[in-house]
């Protein structure tokens, strides 16, 4: 049988820099969507905490501990990042492996919110979008997940098939903001 090589979503595309901005690929991590059954949010949160040390976040929020995080990921959806799901979660939620389905990148640099302001119709400035805040919004025409991970750092995910477009759009915006000095 042919030997298949595992490649990350942004293989050969990243990292890139422009002015103060760096765009790099997030480290490969297990990704799992959790969709709690009706009325089971609290039970799922307790199971998550027991198994992975993190609770279920509220809307537009994320929780994280020791390299494992849970992002709010849409109506009735959460994304577990950084650990394979414990079997106990399936009792309370539909649990689906998403590990190879998303391209995830990290945008860093002073003024990174200005780069994203060129691409998303939401206010991601620190005054309204703090560390640990997350949201779903279109980046260009791609349905994205954006999380603030630091003072000048964002983690961004889109469907894997759109990795090259994501990198192109972000790189163009980074260069545009950098050119303004």
């Amino acid at each position: 049988m042919t030997e298949l090589l595992a490649k990350t979503a942004c293989d050969g595309l990243l990292s890139v820099t422009a002015g103060p901005f760096t765009l790099s690929e997030e480290p490969v991590a297990p990704l799992t969507s959790l969709m709690p059954y009706k009325g089971r949010d609290k039970a799922l949160s307790a199971a998550l905490e027991a198994a992975h040390g993190v609770k279920l976040p509220g809307v537009n929020r994320s929780t994280s501990k020791a390299g494992i995080s849970v992002l709010w990921f849409g109506r009735g959806q959460f994304l577990l990042v950084g650990a394979g799901p414990d079997g106990s979660l399936a009792e309370h939620a539909a649990v689906v492996d998403q590990s190879d389905a998303w391209a995830r990148v990290r945008l860093e640099g002073a003024g990174a919110d200005q780069v994203l302001a060129r691409l998303l119709p939401v206010d991601l400035r620190a005054a309204s979008f703090k560390r640990g805040h997350t949201l779903r919004s279109p980046l260009g025409h791609m349905m994205a997940s954006v999380t603030r991970t630091g003072v000048n750092a964002f983690s961004i995910a889109v469907f894997r098939s759109m990795a090259a477009t994501l990198v192109h759009d972000l790189k163009t915006a980074m260069e545009g903001v950098a050119a303004r000095g």
Binding site: V59, G74, R75, S137
Partner: peptide, 8 residues
């Protein structure tokens, strides 16, 4: 339909 957001 909140297509680009939460999907509600």
């Amino acid at each position: 339909y909140h297509e680009g957001g939460c999907s509600a």
